[in-house]
């Protein structure tokens, strides 16, 4: 292939993604610098950075940043640790292994909106939910999960969906582990933990990096789970940055401030992306 053809073939994907990035982003930046509230169309004009000031000094801002970090961090920890444990647990031949596997990975294919609604109503409802029923049965006081522990509830819901993703990938890569090496280690008297640290974990280093990277991409902008369950509340207890911007734009109709928030979110995502891509990016390519 000659150079021109190569360029020509590459061009479409690069151009559409550049446009997808630049057009809306420049509009967002423009909106963020003007006064633009759908409720007061007569108020217009350039306002400089005051939209940013408003967004960043909003009382909801620090908790939103904090919640975003806690949410991403805890879901990553839970899904990787639990995913590893379960993948190792089912990495042996036994009766009904195929069914167990199908059951374990199913939550990953469930729509986030369905997932959130099922947990909100049928699991966590303080009166009729199964958690409340179980609490009653063992004589404890039922907890209104979404009100008392809103962020924890969202973490549980998201983890339930994404741990299967980690299981699916660890399970697959465990199958390519050298069994003879493991048997040799067992014969040499290496215990479970010795084998885990020295054989299994190094073997899984790359899959773990990939799981972290992909999950981070999806978790930084978690929206549906919060939208459907807590609506970011009570107060700002479960508001992340994505939801805070949404609330500014579509609940308070302040396009200017919401756009400032959007620019902020893009910057935050880029910082994370740079670190992440530096750390594990090269792992992603053969």
């Amino acid at each position: 292939m000659n150079r021109t053809l190569v360029r020509l073939l590459q061009a479409p994907s690069i151009i559409v993604l550049l446009m997808w990035m630049i057009v809306p982003l420049s509009m967002t930046i423009y909106f963020s610098l003007i006064r633009y509230n759908l409720l007061y169309p007569e108020r217009t004009g350039f306002v400089g950075l005051s939209n940013y000031e408003f967004f960043v000094t909003d009382a909801a801002f620090p908790p939103a940043v904090w919640n975003t970090l806690i949410l991403v961090g805890s879901v990553l920890c839970i899904s990787v640790v639990l995913g590893l444990a379960i993948a190792i647990l089912i990495d042996r031949p036994f009766l009904g292994r195929g069914i167990v596997r199908v059951m374990l990975i199913s939550p990953f294919f469930i729509m986030p909106t369905v997932n959130a609604l099922v947990w909100k109503n049928m699991m966590m409802n303080p009166i009729y939910g199964l958690f409340a029923v179980v609490a009653h049965a063992i004589g404890a006081e039922p907890i209104d999960w979404l009100t008392v522990y809103p962020l924890l509830s969202v973490i549980i819901i998201v983890s339930w969906q994404w741990t299967p993703f980690a299981i699916l990938i660890f399970m697959t890569s465990l199958q390519s582990q050298d069994q003879e090496q493991k048997e040799a280690a067992t014969l040499d008297g290496a215990g479970f933990w010795a084998q885990f640290w020295n054989l299994t974990l190094p073997h899984l280093a790359r899959p773990i990096a990939i799981v972290l990277m992909i999950q981070m991409i999806f978790h930084l902008s978690i929206f549906a789970e919060i939208f459907v369950t807590t609506s970011g509340g009570p107060g700002t207890a479960s508001t992340n940055i994505a939801y805070l911007i949404y609330a500014q734009a579509l609940l308070q109709f302040d396009v200017g401030v919401a756009s400032a928030g959007g620019v902020f979110a893009v910057i935050l995502a880029n910082i994370v992306a740079i670190f992440l891509i530096r750390a594990v990016g090269k792992n992603l390519m053969v």
């Binding site: 967002t28 981070m216 929206f223 911007i245 880029n270 891509i277 990016g281 090269k282």
Partner: peptide, 21 residues
């Protein structure tokens, strides 16, 4: 490789940031 990683980084832009435009 850098182009591919740049493409992947566009995936990290939160959708809300560009919803209004």
């Amino acid at each position: 490789k850098d182009i591919l990683l740049w493409m992947l980084s566009t995936k990290m832009l939160p959708a809300v940031g560009v919803l209004l435009p």
